[in-house]
Design a protein around this nucleic acid. Structure first.
Length: 429
DNA sequence: TCTGGGGTCCTAGGACCC
DNA sequence: TCTGGGGTCCTAGGACCC
């Protein structure tokens, strides 16, 4: 075994993920400036290279761009998470073949841990890239380095420098060259360092990734946290962040949405809370968990001229539960009295916390609330699986037809990989 | 008129216990 | 009215990520 063979972290990232997915089934978008919008068609969450070249930023509100879309020949799509999730799974399945030690980090990124010489690892990366492009049709970029933090930075390089053709291996650079690379990045380009930390670092005369790498780890820990101290070590090539095993179940869970139009009455808000609580409870049952506590909020727009208003509430359940009846009741009782009639609420959310496996601790029968026996949740799940999500719901959520405040998705593509009736059609000439 | 949603980790501080 | 120290657990809030 050559002495230069060692373990490296590889970060594989789907390029402009959501746009690439849209292009796969909408070839008309190929080569055209394209953005994908967040829920509610609110703001930009993915941009093609052409859209980036137009100066469109991540998070730009759509209403500010819409007027220029025609002039720019800018195409846009509502987000279609079912499609993206399905394509992501295909990519991850391929990646899993290359490394036993493998972490799906997000819908469009995965870390792999591999051994080999620099040349071998670069060759593997090229093979991964070609295979995913051929078998799924999505372009990916790959960064290789000694730690996750450096692999992230390396991945950035693979995107910024076209000559690298999508693969950047930091082992290909001399220490002097690596220093120049680190010096060229402000600290906020690093994974785990955002604006607030960046500003505090600047005050300590730490401006670039190189400055941070050379900073005293003990001082960084004292002034910031163990998290940033780890970043310092990671920049030095000391791998501090292990690859995480696949997530079993979530530790907390949220359902929250902005409304297409503001909700201004308590009566309408009751229906919102009822629907949202049932959605959250449904997700909880799907992962076979129960929740110890629940919290909820409604809020007005932080961008409006009128003062921002928000109302929060929460309960702890006497016995951890997944019962939608109990949750709907708790949310309505906890929040509706505080809701101000006439205020323009634009958003609401329900959070479930302290999740644990259902049945992990069987409560004494005497403490189980009465309706727990009725298994209402399971019944709701069964009916909606069979007849569609809108077919059943508790109380005010049971009305057929979407309420006017529900989410806006004006430019949704088809769910071409997961629904028979939305398959792509190929026209022969 | 119109600005996303869903997570994780860490820390500080309070409650409570012996 | 005085009155210890150390530990754990929980929660809220901050910061960050995609």
């Amino acid at each position: 075994m050559p002495a230069s063979e060692s373990r490296r972290i590889m970060l594989v990232d789907m390029n402009n993920c959501f746009v690439s997915c849209e292009r796969l089934f909408g070839p008309i978008l190929e080569g055209v400036a394209t953005v994908v919008l967040s829920n509610n068609d609110g703001c930009v969450v993915a941009r093609s290279a052409e859209a980036k070249a137009l100066g469109i930023q991540m998070g730009d509100p759509w209403f500010k761009l819409e007027g220029r879309a025609k002039q720019w020949n800018l195409q846009y799509r509502s987000s279609n998470y079912e499609l993206y999730g399905s394509l992501s799974e295909r990519v991850m399945t391929i990646l899993a073949r290359y490394a036993a030690d493998f972490e799906v980090y997000s819908i469009d990124e995965a870390f792999l841990s591999l051994r080999g010489t620099p040349a071998e690892l670069t060759a593997v990366a090229r093979d991964i890239r070609a295979t995913i492009l051929r078998n799924v049709g999505i372009p990916v970029s790959i960064g290789i380095a000694k730690s996750k933090t450096l692999a992230k930075l390396s991945n950035r390089g693979s995107k910024k420098n076209p000559a690298l053709e999508g693969v950047c291996n930091l082992d290909d650079y001399t220490p002097e060259h690596l220093n120049r690379i680190l010096a060229a990045h402000p600290t906020t380009d690093l994974w785990g360092v955002a604006g607030r930390t960046g500003a505090r670092l600047t005050a300590l005369n730490i401006h670039t990734a190189l400055d941070l790498r050379n900073a005293d780890p003990a001082l960084i820990r004292k002034k910031f946290s163990v998290v940033l101290q780890r970043t310092v070590y990671e920049l030095r090539g000391i791998d501090c962040l292990p690859l995480e095993p696949p997530a079993t179940v979530k530790e907390q869970l949220m359902f929250s949405r902005s409304f297409a139009i503001p909700v201004t009455t308590r009566q309408a808000m009751e229906r919102v809370l009822s629907v949202y609580s049932q959605k959250a409870a449904g997700r909880l049952r799907k992962q076979h968990s129960v929740a110890k506590s629940m919290s909820f909020f409604v809020s007005t727009s932080p961008f409006s001229d009128t003062p921002y208003e928000s109302v929060h509430g929460g309960v702890s359940f006497p016995v951890p539960t997944d019962d939608p009846v109990e949750m709907v009741r708790a949310a309505i009782a906890g929040l509706i009295p505080q809701v101000r009639e006439g205020a323009k609420y634009v958003r609401a959310g329900v959070m479930l916390a302290g999740l644990c496996a259902r049945g992990a601790q069987q409560p004494l029968e005497v403490f189980v609330p009465l309706h727990e026996h009725k298994a209402v949740g399971e019944l709701l799940d069964r009916v909606s699986r069979r007849h569609g999500a809108a077919s059943i719901g508790l109380g005010l959520a049971g009305l057929k037809g979407a309420p006017i405040w529900s989410m806006k998705r004006g430019h949704l593509s088809k769910r071409a990989t997961t629904h028979w009736d939305e398959l792509a059609t190929v026209h022969a000439r």
